[in-house]
Design a protein around this nucleic acid. Structure first.
Lengths: 234, 234
DNA sequence: CCAAAAGTGTTGCAGGTACACCCATGG
DNA sequence: CCATGGGTGTACCTGCAACACTTTTGG
């Protein structure tokens, strides 16, 4: 049991970042960027992007800054996740970490910065991370999957326009189950939050789907998201 | 705009405590205890119970301790609410507050400690509080009302045994609407989480209701957040 | 023409709501 | 025996799962 009676509590900010990218089979899965630690403790291990909280910076601004420093991207979605403060979560000092979670657009994420000290990994095959960061990622995934407002999540992970199949794919990845395309379509249209752009996607070998965008009006904020059941395997 | 470049960030823990107590008309409403500030800043104003985080104390333990110091009660339910860290939320220093929310049993709360520096107020008629504490209480109320697991809330606010009418009363206060007694009964029984004690309440001027207790849930644990620990021992 | 994805129609079931009605007790 | 809350029965209504079906394109 470490004793930190003399030293003050130090405050850090970290961020779990999610983006939708295809895995080796071409199917989209959730990826998250990690950074390699260049100082002790846990030198050389992979960890969540983050840093000490500067006295004059807002918590969320600090999270957005570390996110940009890592991925070069601006978050479409940024929300406080939880504050982790176990006495022994860091070996040397007492460190309390305010953790945020962020979503970035998939098309931008495709050309995200990477380097020897930055690495994107699928969220479900996370390596051993520094500190309690594995637990933090677990919790972020749990929050992502139990989040009620899926519409907002999908919006943040996709670009401005998308097909209903792409939107459904987001739901399927996050919820980890197949959804019936027919019922999904009706549910989404009925929510009133989608608008047709009038355009279609061509070039694909089948019937060209319509493109949609999200309604910008924030007037439909109280609608509850439906609970969808599994589609039987074909 | 305050500048805190030299001074370190300080970390505090506060708690919003809810209990069910009758108001002046006898109807149960949510009450919350406040403490009067005895030091600057905001000397003399009412505020949430809390204090600085000691380097060797867990966050949740610190919340439980301040709760006990204020009300003399042990929390039935204690959960992290949010971390508030705006640069200018405290006039002098940069203070980041990890805020918890707690529920205490109504029958214990009825004989809770009070004094010149402790005051219980109905949660919907909160006076002007120190710092950003009014906003914090607002947020705690929102979380209480949008919480999915009402069963756990009701369990925490009531004692070990209760009638279905008492349980319904909790739901009505939290949800802020009347519920059909007949349907409420069926829904609760169907949930499988209630057990009859075999006892009845007598003395009331009508048909004596049955007493129930909550199932000691071992099978209903999967909805719980992954890493959440059991509530602290008093 | 064929394969496959886009998109439509329809039915049945589950869960919730409304409300009529019987039961038990103190005054 | 009456008023009132405890407790049961039941019909209706809404929303979604299931799945059959039609439409539209590229090859």
């Amino acid at each position: 049991m470490p004793h930190h009676d003399g030293a003050p509590v130090r405050l850090a900010v970290s961020t779990v970042i999610f983006a939708l990218r295809p895995d080796h089979t071409g199917l989209p899965v959730l990826w998250t960027p990690l950074v390699r630690r260049t100082v002790e403790p846990h030198l050389g291990l992979w960890a969540l992007p983050g840093g000490w909280l500067p006295p004059n910076e807002e918590l969320e601004a600090a999270a957005a800054r570390t996110l940009r420093a890592t991925t070069g991207l601006a978050p479409n979605y940024l929300e406080q996740l939880y504050t982790f403060g176990e006495v022994d979560r860091s070996p040397d000092a007492r460190v309390v970490s305010v953790v945020y979670w962020a979503l970035v657009q998939s098309d931008e994420a495709a050309q995200a910065t990477a380097g020897p000290n930055v690495r994107w990994v699928p969220a479900d095959t996370m390596p051993g991370l520094a500190f309690d960061h594995n637990r933090i990622v677990e919790y972020a995934l749990w929050r992502l999957r139990t989040k009620v407002e899926y519409a907002e999540l999908a919006h943040a992970l996709l670009g401005a326009t998308f097909t209903l199949a792409e939107l459904r794919e987001v739901y399927e990845v996050v919820l980890q189950r197949r959804l019936d395309p027919a019922n999904f379509r009706r549910t989404m249209i009925a929510s009133g939050r989608l608008r047709e752009t009038g355009e279609h996607v061509s070039g694909a070998p089948h019937r060209p789907p319509k493109l949609y965008r999200y309604e910008t009006a924030a007037s439909t904020a109280q609608t509850r998201e439906p609970f969808m059941k599994e589609r039987p395997a074909s």
